[in-house]
């Protein structure tokens, strides 16, 4: 019998990697290897879509302003159609920070100028004056994941608001989340999960990593993953949970 495979696609690994995003990639790959999957990474830099149709889980991280502008052009020119196709066929996407914003409807600057995103998720972002920085604890709305919390670190000045098609990833117990007003954090829309949490996100939230993988592999009939020893990951998760309790 052929080994099970998992293909991870990293969008713009050289430009969108500011907040230790490699941790999310390593977590997806290592956990697949530990479960005896054949795990493969496809790097989707500027100008290429090679292998994009094989991808099960996409990762799209945060970048600096200068890099984000370069990525935006390439996204429209070479990636948008292929990404839409992949998502329609059941691939899952984790988009963090800048990646989250770029997949939305638009980003509006402080001067009111609007830059359209690629509109894969029904969210819009406006520039804010104060930066939201610090630890975050989220009570997640995702069904069937244990524990029901997500932890991470946020550092963003954008305020993101969800439209009717996007559901929040959860509610903040500690931290600011999407916009600091409605207590929501992140979004879920079909197979796409957007969030401001880094830190890195997946190493401290292994249950979320597994959720992304199972939701992509469902199309190949895999709905459950072999359990792993997550004691170290959960210990780090609980350290941040404890900070929320101390307040």
């Amino acid at each position: 019998m052929a080994r099970k495979t998992l293909t991870v696609g990293w969008l713009y690994p050289d430009l969108m990697n500011i907040y230790g995003d490699r941790g999310n990639i390593l977590t997806l790959l290592k956990r697949a290897e530990w479960r005896d999957f054949d795990a493969r990474l496809i790097e989707l830099g500027r100008g290429t879509t090679e292998g994009i149709d094989d991808v099960d889980v996409f990762f799209f991280g945060g970048g600096q302003d200068r890099e984000q502008a370069l990525v935006y052009e390439d996204l429209l020119e070479t990636k948008q159609t292929a990404l839409e196709r992949a998502v329609a066929s059941g691939a899952s996407v984790l988009a963090v920070c800048g990646g989250y914003q770029l997949l939305g409807q638009y980003y509006q600057t402080g001067e009111g100028e609007r830059f359209p995103g690629i509109g894969l998720i029904d969210v819009r972002t406006e520039a804010g004056k104060q930066r939201f920085i610090g630890d975050v604890v989220v009570d997640t709305d995702l069904p069937d994941i244990q524990p029901q919390t997500l932890v991470g670190f946020e550092n963003h000045s954008g305020r993101t608001y969800l439209g009717p098609k996007a559901k929040p990833l959860g509610r903040v117990r500690m931290g600011f989340g999407n916009n600091g007003e409605d207590h929501t954090e992140g979004c879920i829309q079909g197979g796409i999960l957007g969030t401001y949490l880094h830190g890195s996100l997946l190493p401290k939230n292994p249950h979320l990593a597994d959720h992304l993988v199972t939701s992509a592999l469902a199309r190949r009939g895999i709905t459950e993953l072999a359990p792993l020893d997550d004691a170290a990951e959960i210990a780090a998760h609980e350290k941040i949970l404890a900070r929320a309790q101390r307040r």
């Binding site: 230790g20 995003d21 490699r22 941790g23 390593l26 920085i133 890195s200």
Partner: peptide, 9 residues
């Protein structure tokens, strides 16, 4: 620095 995400780099 209060953000430790850099250890992944």
């Amino acid at each position: 620095g209060t953000d430790v995400s850099w250890i992944w780099d």
